[in-house]
Amino acid sequence: MYPEIQKAGGEVVGFMPDTPEDVKAMVERTGVKFPMLADPDAAVAEAFGLRHAEAVPGKDLARPAILFVRADGTVAGSFQPDNYRRSVTPEELRAGFAGAVTSP
């Protein structure tokens, strides 16, 4: 999906509530091609309203979410499952991204 979004002039950015070292290791392990940002205290997730308090005993994490952001920085839509087991489908990703491209 990433090449498809890039070809359409879009960008993908990931956020992980981990240390830069953990993020680097994770990127190397999974071969992620897009920028993966380290958000060690989930502070940015908090700013987005996506903090998941005490997700693991003693550790706050981010609520898994995908935001589709327009060129002007506003949010066109989001994918926020109510369960960790549910992941986004390519169709949902495509539709969400299309919403961020077409709207003003």
Binding site: G9, M36, R63, I66, V101
Partner: peptide, 30 residues
């Protein structure tokens, strides 16, 4: 926001302006 990616590059909300962006928040490794 302003954070660093896996290569040490700074990415901020301002640097993402001008194109549609998909932001993916993960729960990370724990």
């Amino acid at each position: 926001f302003e954070l660093r990616d896996q290569d040490g590059n700074t990415v901020s909300d301002a640097s993402l302006r001008g194109k549609p962006v998909v932001l993916i928040f993960g729960r990370g490794v724990w």
